[in-house]
Design a protein around this nucleic acid. Sequence first.
DNA 1: AATAATATTGCAAATTATTTGCATTTATGA
DNA 2: TCATAAATGCAAATAATTTGCAATATTATT
Lengths: 137, 137
Amino acid sequence: MDKCDSAVILKQNGLKVTQQRLLLLDAIINTDKIFSALSLQDKVNDNMDLVTIYRILTVFLENKIIRDVISKDTTRFYELSCIHNPVHPHFVCRKCNNIICLNSLKNGYMSKFKEITGDNIVENVIIQFTGICSKCK
Amino acid sequence: MDKCDSAVILKQNGLKVTQQRLLLLDAIINTDKIFSALSLQDKVNDNMDLVTIYRILTVFLENKIIRDVISKDTTRFYELSCIHNPVHPHFVCRKCNNIICLNSLKNGYMSKFKEITGDNIVENVIIQFTGICSKCK
DNA sequence: AATAATATTGCAAATTATTTGCATTTATGA
DNA sequence: TCATAAATGCAAATAATTTGCAATATTATT
Ligand SMILES: [Mn+2]
Ligand SMILES: [Mn+2]
Ligand SMILES: [Zn+2]
Ligand SMILES: [Zn+2]
């Protein structure tokens, strides 16, 4: 499966191509897990300032390069939003604290949600299951 | 529509019936909105310590008297969990920041989720739509 | 009703994630 | 190359939540 190119994504969104944005976006593209500001800092060995990471994440969110996944214990988690990673539900195990990406809902389901969202304009859906994961039970 | 009795709920859960728990649970029962620790403090005019509120909310969560609804901007929001208020999705408007309770999903839907949750044991589902609410559009 | 044992509360201080201000550095296009 | 505006790093501020500990309230027992 081919991956997105970080420089291309930045340019497509009219963003300045800085070293820090490239490093961060590369790290994001090359992980299949969700991430927080802190977990990203660990991943990019460069000692990039946490403040810079927060600011870049804000820019990436505004440009929908990443999306909000979950807030767990007052920490925000995100994931890459691209053609290779469509919106999908997550499962949070309350024992091991792991967050598992689940398969996407079939299109029929998503459209069925319209019955309950009414006149509100839906831009994103977060579906989060909590419980005990198959490994922990 | 009749409401739950706070003292009864506390006793049913084997919890000590303290003034603070009664006050807080009454406030929770008598609101139809979701709440945070801070918004609850405003509601109970008694100048109850915020720390006490946090500790009581933890106890209420453990006993499933309340449930987690959403984390928005690093603030946790909860709502009453009782026969009068079954699990349901929420809509967060990114313009006015209002959080709207939506109608519950039909039982058929919930059971259909099993296809994607697999062997994990689901205890709770949080469904959160974001976008522009009907008033703001 | 008074007492004792134990859990809960309040206050001060700590922690954690995130944000802000400002001076310095970097990217970009003229 | 140079000018300009935007991005970054560092220090400090916020904001939500948690922890430690002494004082207090609840509940079961006398
Ligand atoms: Mn995922
Ligand atoms: Mn609700
Ligand atoms: Zn687990
Ligand atoms: Zn709105």
